[in-house]
Design a protein around this nucleic acid. Sequence first.
DNA 1: TTCATAATTTTGTTATAACAAAAATCATGA
DNA 2: TCATGATTTTTGTTATAACAAAATTATGAA
Lengths: 223, 223
Amino acid sequence: MTPIILVCSQDAELYLLLAHVLHSEGFEARLAASEDDVMDACTSEEISAVLLDCAGWPSDLAPLCALLKGTGLSVGALIDGNMRAQHLQLIKAGLDEGITRPLSPSKLLAFLQGIRPRSEAVTRSSFAVPAEFVFEPHAVVVSGKRISLAPMEVRILRFLLERQGQISTRQQLIEAAWPDRHAVESRTVDVHIGRLRRAIAELRDLRVRTVYGAGYALEFHYG
Amino acid sequence: MTPIILVCSQDAELYLLLAHVLHSEGFEARLAASEDDVMDACTSEEISAVLLDCAGWPSDLAPLCALLKGTGLSVGALIDGNMRAQHLQLIKAGLDEGITRPLSPSKLLAFLQGIRPRSEAVTRSSFAVPAEFVFEPHAVVVSGKRISLAPMEVRILRFLLERQGQISTRQQLIEAAWPDRHAVESRTVDVHIGRLRRAIAELRDLRVRTVYGAGYALEFHYG
DNA sequence: TTCATAATTTTGTTATAACAAAAATCATGA
DNA sequence: TCATGATTTTTGTTATAACAAAATTATGAA
């Protein structure tokens, strides 16, 4: 079931760009240009999250935010950096994520894919690799065993360890393990996962699990 | 070699969004916020195309456009619909493609992927399926043979026939053959191409050719 | 005729062997 | 020691069998 994101804006171009980005990340986008549109959309479809465009909306969005939060929806908002009072109002209304302009698509996507806000992301980045794992450029040492790995396999394994069992999409793996702006097909990830699996096959407590239609997660049993 | 698109703008958010869109379509984006930046970029890297943001540039872009065209680069421009004089100046400067605001990502991508401008696209859509092919919902009849096909295979074959041997990317196939806003993995396309190939295997004059790293094209020998 | 259920078809996704291309490393000779 | 060519390793992509899920069609009972 493709999650549907309701974009509340009267900025047509922003919507077109966002719709494109969302679509290519596995979301569907819907446009609401008025409060009536918002009500109609929430009634007729199962909306997964709402994105409020503060610059592209003629009135104060805090009441609408409160209403949407009252229905249990996740709500994010695009907020101008200089509109602090508005930001505060939205936070009081229960806003889940404020995304300041200029908009960073990756932060928006992180919000939509359930990744915690940056402050928590920073906290989580201190989730280091468990001490049992010692990485080398072409290998990993764990449980007294030294496993040869290609550099790409090393990067993927390290990332999955840092994620501590959470599901990673292929796109997240690409962003984490490939050099910046390096475009590869998502099925390239699948092939590397297979290579990593074969390389670590002899480790009984470590396994890469496939989550159908979502991505991959690491299972590691400490002992 | 990933094509590099130089985006000339001082609108940070537009750049972030465009960079994201371009990146996920297999392009790399670079930002130039001044004419010096443009010159630096063109000197230091092999730029495949340039995109001029007329709203996000402080001066007339026609001279820069002429300069870039002089170097043989493809140049597109984002142009406000009400800036006709500017549009004319850019056309006189040799502009390849004017994309009016609000920006449609698919039109931008069509330009970047070498698809002809819309006027030519409309012309090309009259390239009907050759008369030898008669399509049914679950089959195609050609050369006196009736080949059973799944509906998706019918849509893919029809699209490839209309393309008359031109290469289609997986994304183009998805946009043409799948319902609007339907998100599938690009490897889903590969699987359907395989199924289509098996279905039409007995037709000696019809073949789906793989273009490594690009997509697919149909080979059909009339006779 | 309608509707619920089962069966079948279609579509989406995964795994992995294999091939293509690029990058890194090694060997050799000047 | 260094440049160059050869070899090996690494990475990206493709093909396709197989599995999972969704959609459509068929069937039988009410």
